[in-house]
Amino acid sequence: MKIAVDPAACDGFGFCAGILAGLVSLDEWGFPLLSQASVPDELRAAARQAVKCCPRRALLLSEDRRLTEDRPRRRRRAA
């Protein structure tokens, strides 16, 4: 299972770092840093939970086809 962040969608809420502490840490500006691209088996459930929890749907899993699709920005988010 591969995991990735859509950097354009990510707004730095940091929920993923709370749920997937072993895989995701936050940089000095609050944005996610993945320690590796593949999800260890024991973290699979937590990864799915983190994906569901992200307010901007910015966390992508390879089992979710969205990881391989382009994600056009429909509109600018307000600052």
Binding site: F13, G14, F15, G18, I19, A50, C53, P55
Partner: peptide, 14 residues
């Protein structure tokens, strides 16, 4: 939504 600071992780409030 306003990301109020919290002792607990943000996803807990969510």
């Amino acid at each position: 939504a306003g990301r109020a600071p919290s002792a607990r992780p943000g996803f807990a409030r969510s």
